[in-house]
Nucleic acid binder design. Structure first.
Length: 417
RNA sequence: CGGGGUGUGGCGCAGUUGGCUAGCGCGCCGCGUUUGGGACGCGGAGGCCGGAGGUUCGAGUCCUCUCACCCCGACCA
């Protein structure tokens, strides 16, 4: 992508009504656009980050046997009435709408009910189980207050997976397998070392503990108590002696931290399947309950959480795994030879499969290009100028390092491709 | 939803006790000079001051209502 053709622009001032660092940086860099409170548009570069995160999540879910579908945003009322989650007094953050004929519909609050209801068409025998089904979709929640940019919105992107097992033992095996996949996702995103599996309250979704995945961050909404040695934590909301006894944390070693919830997994037991009347027939011909689990990752929230974490005074500092491009190629000046070398480097990198943002703008000054390279947070910066060509080299700098090196073109292609 | 605050060109802001034609910086357009850390000169375009109503000779400024946005709290798979 040539920067001269990119329709988004960077800006020096962040909007005054966006105090959170993640939203300020992402808006200044042109990654997102605020539509209204808690509702954001993903712009070309932001969408790439979002898609990169989705892809990592997708790969890890597929690796544990997840099958991807896309559920609907519009949802029928009756299945939520059966589980007693339609009444606004029970679940107060619905967005609802109506058909012309007056029938009420829900809008993508969560998908346990539609998922279970849909599976009734396909699951009836022990031979059909276990299964893992997921989607990556927009969720709509009528929060009283949106906050902190992408961290708490009213419309957001979530990966939600649902498991259905024959027995509690089978469920637990799947549950742990998915938990391990979650750790791999956070590792690949570069936040594995600061993300803790955390005991939490399952709320209206489960009668048992749920497991949150909490990323340490000073702006996190949650307070958790971390057992550093065991690499697990407990959410403040369940921190009492009786509950602690059910965990295996060392009570004496807990330290308080703020954290962002970047994932959450719940055992559902047979709550939704039983309530919606979905069962299976075992080998002996007896009707049995299906044991469920659900597994969420806030994909768009992760964009905000990563922006919050991977940034410095100059701007964003994306890890390569999610960066909107791998290389920011700066061309300084319009000298014929400089243009020729930069153009061909751009072509060759692309041919080698390297994503490049090529700053070919004629009107932008050198300082502006460097500032933008830093703000956008692209991991590798290459510079082609008369100065570098005099030495027959190309300059290379990593976004997160100070040192600058002059390399041959062949080395650059070798290193980055 | 309770409390607090803010709405003035695309963005950031200023605008005295009400006074004439609403300013500044950034950005934008044109011409020229620049090109290794957000360049410079000259010339331009763009706002009936969130909206509605009211007080007044006169309202960005005062009053009422309303909408939006932000913060704290409550709430939140």
């Amino acid at each position: 992508m040539r920067v001269s053709e990119l329709f988004t622009k960077t800006r020096k001032d962040a909007p005054a009504d966006e105090p959170s660092k993640n939203a300020q940086l992402l808006i200044k860099a042109g990654f997102i656009h605020k539509e209204m409170a808690g509702v954001y548009v993903f712009m070309p570069l932001g969408l790439r980050v979002l898609d990169n995160i989705k892809q990592i999540v997708r790969e890890e879910m597929n690796a544990v046997g997840g099958q991807e579908v896309q559920m609907t945003v519009l949802q029928p009322k009756d299945i939520f009435e059966k589980t007693d989650r339609w009444d606004d007094k029970k679940v107060d953050n619905w967005f609802k709408t109506k058909l012309i004929n007056g029938s009420e519909l829900g809008m993508g609050l969560t998908h346990e009910e539609p998922m279970v209801d849909m599976l009734a068409d396909y699951v009836s025998s022990y031979k059909d189980l276990p299964i893992l089904v997921y989607q990556i979709q927009n969720k709509f929640r009528n929060e009283l207050r949106a906050q902190a940019g992408l961290l708490r919105g009213r419309e957001f992107v979530m990966k939600d997976m649902y498991s259905f097992a024959k027995t509690q033992a089978e469920h637990e095996e799947i549950y742990e397998k998915v938990a391990a996949a979650y750790h791999r996702v956070y590792d690949r995103l570069g936040i594995g070392d600061i993300t803790y599996r955390t005991y939490a309250d399952g709320g209206i979704f489960t009668p048992r503990f749920s497991d949150e995945f909490q990323m340490l961050s000073p702006i996190g909404e949650d307070t958790i108590y971390v057992d550093i040695d065991k690499k697990i934590a407990v959410n403040k909301e369940v921190i009492n002696d009786k509950r602690l006894e059910q965990t295996d944390v060392d009570k004496t070693k807990l330290q308080e931290e703020r954290a962002i919830e970047v994932g959450n997994i719940f055992p559902l037991e047979s709550k939704y399947t039983d309530t919606l009347g979905v069962y299976y027939i075992d080998e002996a011909g007896n009707r049995q309950s299906i044991i469920g689990g659900c597994y969420g990752i806030g994909v768009s929230r992760l964009v905000g959480a990563l922006a919050e974490h991977f940034s410095d005074e100059q701007g964003l500092v994306w890890p390569e795994a999610v960066a909107p491009a791998k290389v920011y190629l700066v061309r300084l000046g319009e000298d014929g030879e400089v243009v020729k070398v930069a153009d061909s480097l751009y072509e060759e990198l692309q041919k080698a499969g390297v994503e490049v943002l090529y700053d070919d703008r004629k009107e932008a000054s050198a300082g502006e290009k460097f500032a933008d390279a830093d703000l956008l947070g692209i991991p590798h910066r290459l510079v082609v100028s008369q100065k570098t060509l005099e030495k027959g080299k190309i300059e290379h700098k990593k976004r997160d390092k100070k040192d600058i090196s002059l390399l041959d073109k062949s080395d650059i292609l070798k290193t980055l491709a």
